[in-house]
Write a protein that binds this DNA or RNA. Sequence first.
DNA 1: TAGATTGTTAATCGATTAACAATC
DNA 2: TAGATTGTTAATCGATTAACAATC
Lengths: 210, 210
Amino acid sequence: MAKEKNYVSEAVMRRMPKYYRYLTDMEKSGIERISSRELSQRMGLTASQIRQDFNCFGGFGQQGYGYNVSELRLEIQKILGLTNTYNVIIAGAGNLGQALANYTGFEKDGFHVKCLFDINPRLIGMSIRGIPIYDIDEMEDYISNNKVDIAAICTPKEKAREAAERVIKSGVRGIWNFAAVDIAAPHHVIVENVHLSDSLYTLSFRMSDE
Amino acid sequence: MAKEKNYVSEAVMRRMPKYYRYLTDMEKSGIERISSRELSQRMGLTASQIRQDFNCFGGFGQQGYGYNVSELRLEIQKILGLTNTYNVIIAGAGNLGQALANYTGFEKDGFHVKCLFDINPRLIGMSIRGIPIYDIDEMEDYISNNKVDIAAICTPKEKAREAAERVIKSGVRGIWNFAAVDIAAPHHVIVENVHLSDSLYTLSFRMSDE
DNA sequence: TAGATTGTTAATCGATTAACAATC
DNA sequence: TAGATTGTTAATCGATTAACAATC
C-alpha cells in the first residue's frame, strides 16, 4: 500500500529509474523474488538504502521473504508515472532531434513523439519514421490544439530559451532540455536537463584526476 | 595557486561543468569580474557553496574584489582536464552515434571524434562529416594502433557490455556510455553514463508528482 | 583608511548506514 | 516454531549554510 506521495529527496528520486531498470531486466530474466541484500549487490547500493528508499512510498516487501519482483516493478512504474501516456514534440529537427524521433524505445514507456519542429525549410515537410517535421512557426498552434505534455528542446543553445518560452506559453507541462543552457520555467512546468557537455566534462575531469 | 587535487566529492564534481559553462558565457559577454554572491544569484546556488567549491582546489579569488572571470574560467578549464585533447571513437553508428559524430561543439573543448564502428554493412565505408565508419571487427585493432582515449558506447543496450569489454581490453581509458545498462570497468577506466531513459523517467515522476 | 568580499572555521541540516524489533 | 528479512528508529557521516576573521 503506497503512502501519499509527499516530499521525496532529489537523491531518492534519481535512484528510482535505476530500480525500475533493474527490476525490468530481472523480471525479463525470470527472477521472481529478491531481497534488499541481493538487490544491493547487483546495483552497488546498500541494502539499508534500498529499504529506506522504498519506504518513502510505503512498504512493498514482506518480512522473511523480500520483494516480489513483478509487484515491486509495477509499484515503481506507478511511482514514476509510467502508467500514464505522454505526447511529446521535439523542437529542433537537427541531429539530436532526429535521433530522438528515430528511437523507438520510449514508446513502451508511454512516450509518443507526435511531430518535430524546425526552421530549416529543407527539413519542413519531411518525416521521420512517419513523424512529420513542421515549421517551427506552427509550434504554438499545434500545442494549443493538441494535447502535448512534453517538449524536447533540441535546438542550438542560442535558440533554446526562446523555444522553451514558447512551448511553456502554449501549455506544455514538461521540458526535456538538451541544450547547454539552463531554462527558467514557472513552478508548474518541470524542466529536466540532459547536459551532454557537462557529462563529457565530468568524464574528462575524472580521467585527468589521477 | 591550485592545491594538490585530492578527493573531490561527487556533488562538487558535478557542479564544476556548470561553473565552466557559466563562466564561458560570462566571459563571452564581456563580464570581467564577479563576486560569489552575484554568481550565486545567476546560478541558483549559495555564495557560501561557491566559495567552498572553489576552495577544494585552492583560492582563485581576491578579498574585497571577487573573482576574475577569465582567470577563474581558465582554472576550472584546467581542473576539468579540458586543456588536454582527447581522441574519441564511437561504438555504434546508429541514430545517436551519428548525431554525436555530426555535432561539432565538442571539438572546441578538445574532444576529437576519429571514427565510428558498426556491424551494419550498409553503414560500413560511409562517413559523417568526413569521419569514417568502420567494421566493428576492426575496433580492437584501431584502438591498439591509435591513441584512443574515450569510447562512446552508442550500441543497442544488448551489445553495450560486450562493446565496453572490448574497448577496455584494447586500452581505452574512458567510456561515455549511452546505453541503458550499467557497465563494469576496472578501477583505472572511468565510466560516465548518459542514461536518457532514466532522465525521461525522472521527468515523468516529477510531472505526475503534483 | 574604509568597504567589500574572500577563505575558512563552526553550526546545521540532510542523507546514508547501522541496528533491531516486528512479522511473515 | 525457527529463520529470514523487512520496516523503522537511532547513530553516523558528509554536505550545505552561516559566520567571521583575514586581507585586498
